[in-house]
Nucleic acid binder design. Structure first.
Lengths: 337, 337
DNA sequence: AATCGCTAGTAAAGCGCTTTACATATCAAT
DNA sequence: ATTGATATGTAAAGCGCTTTACTAGCGATT
């Protein structure tokens, strides 16, 4: 492959001249420019990014570390981040960690070693402090979607509490009083907040939040199955379930069906996320939509601001939205075991 | 950040010694090793990968270019690639191109400029020759999932023809004779092959492939809607539809429902891909499963083989599998407009 | 006493680029 | 004729690492 020096030799100028010309740091007469351009074309020269990065200390690239790229939520987030980054002339290196602590740490370190200009971090577990430690002191990091305790970098989240608040209000407005909540991992920020929003709606309606009807475990289909089984096998099942992720909701649907019951006739259900499949399941799922694209874009914008020495908002909350489909109806008779 | 020289100074040896020690290219007495280790720990030294790469010309990283990371099929492929690459000590840089020709070309070029050790390429459009040109002469490339005409690198595909053959046979075995096929973009390898498999099954059963019942367009839900509308609005609709992707199948479902018909009672449907949502829709979709994880793994293995100077198979075909769920039943009465 | 072979390293060049500081030629103004 | 400004560049160092070729010192052998 041709190097800068090759081009310089071909054009009869110094490497310095070519470098500065290519970076718009010098004014050259038209004739010289033409010779350089011709040499570049002739040799099919392409700058070696590695060398440039080593020399300048800038990489024009971001890292995105994500728990699981095969999860549509994170995949869409990644797509949005990439779109926005490219629009600003940055590449993005995506790593998916499988949600394992050591993989996350390695990814962060590897990214740092490759000297990317910035890092967008998403996680889905609660940190024991090691992640916070690793991130502490690092500049040009933004946290996306989920918090890491003790890390003071710009964060962009969704209004989790508002989401479950809207969902619960919707259920209550439909006449439900016996509402259960199935949530993600205990102590995860989003889980706390979603529980809080739910509780607020219940309080406002003068309804009790029954301890046995708040099940916290995982944002997965499997946990949806487990939790729904507990709920439906009890002597007095709820008439509505608020699932804190669409994955959980899918699991709930499965169990409801297995119990010979129907959604929404016997049990009403609302999900959270509005993943692509939410509209496709039967019945189409009423759920809380997260503005995934906006989240990714904003994270990138914050990162860019950071790079320019600005100080973006420490925390932004993007609004969520209730999208009503067909998984919610007024409670009919009390469902009996 | 501490450099190799800092470590050397701290340990009282030359940078050469430290470098060679770290790369296992020298035997040092225990005392010296201890001093170096201590210095590394004290300074929290981490090698600068950029510098190393520039110096060695190796990056221990692959690029994966993919049309759309937000598409679960490619996302799962990416996850599999990443898993296998990491297991072999390689990083992978994922780029998603949006399926646009120029974005694909840019991605390939950018990857080459960043000097990754290898490239795994997936595409979903038919190339006009520019991609082939760009890839020609490049070593350490493997093509995954879809072919690019005129590129002679190792390729790993799925047995597309076998997939539709199995699907069609299944439909025929259930008693269907009036079967339509809705496929992806005309001239795409997978489309040709899937059409061929379908045709073979029909031929073997002595059934005609009616030209009006082979609709080629896109692997998308929208195209599924369009094609199914054409099919169902005709005076003599088919009793079964073979959709060449699960996305298409979803579109078909929507149209069937809109026509007041039911799957599988009025129309049988089989998809292709077995995406995560295929089991979740109503009715659960009978479909052809692609071995996504195996595809990703094999692509990486081929790339590694290439790096070691071996010559992996020019083309491997991974087997597909019919997974029967509930979208297929024997034809009932002829569906009338 | 000179030579050999080890051990334990080191000096210096090079990867391909950027950047700082300097150089030369030309021209206009004094 | 000299000065100064402007236009058109260049030399050389440096980014942090690897690698090739070399060397100083020492004990053992002839």
């Amino acid at each position: 492959m041709a190097t800068l020096s090759d081009v310089a030799a071909e054009a009869g100028v110094s490497p310095t001249a070519v470098s500065r010309y290519l970076n718009n740091r010098i004014d050259l007469p038209q004739a010289t420019r033409d010779r350089i351009d011709a040499a570049i074309a002739k040799l099919d020269y392409r700058p070696n990014l590695l060398a440039r990065r080593l020399s300048t200390g800038k990489s024009e690239a971001f890292a995105l570390v994500t728990p699981d790229i095969a999860n549509p939520f994170f995949a869409e987030l990644a797509a949005a981040v990439e779109r926005q980054a490219h629009a600003s002339g940055y590449s993005v290196y995506i790593t998916s960690t499988g949600g394992h602590a050591d993989a996350e740490m390695n990814a962060i370190r590897r990214m740092a070693d490759s000297h990317v200009d910035g890092l967008i971090m998403t996680t889905n577990r609660v940190d024991d402090g090691s992640l916070a430690n690793l991130l502490a002191g690092r500049e040009n990091v933004v946290l996306l979607d989920e918090d890491i305790d003790g890390v003071s970098v710009p964060r962009v989240f969704v209004d989790n509490a508002e989401g479950t608040y809207l969902a619960a209000k919707h259920l209550i407005a439909m006449g439900h009083r016996d509402i259960a909540l199935i949530g993600g991992p205990h102590r995860l920020m989003s889980v706390n907040e979603r529980l809080a929003g739910f509780t607020r709606a219940m309080d406002e309606a003068g309804l009790p939040v029954r301890p046995g009807w708040v099940l916290l475990g995982d944002y997965t289909r499997d946990y949806g199955v487990a939790a729904a089984s507990v709920l439906l096998d009890a002597v007095d099942p709820p008439t509505a379930i608020l699932a804190c992720s669409d994955y959980i909701a899918i699991g709930v649907m499965q169990v409801v069906r297995a119990h010979g019951l129907s959604i929404p006739n016997d049990i009403s259900l609302v999900g959270f996320d509005d993943m692509a499949f939410a509209a496709l399941v039967d019945p189409p799922l009423t759920t809380i939509r997260q503005p995934v694209a906006a989240m990714g874009e904003l994270a990138v914008k914050h990162l860019l601001a950071l790079l320019e020495g600005q100080t973006p908002a420490a925390e932004t909350r993007l609004p969520v939205e209730l999208v009503t489909r067909q998984s919610v109806a007024p409670p009919s008779r009390k469902v009996l075991k």
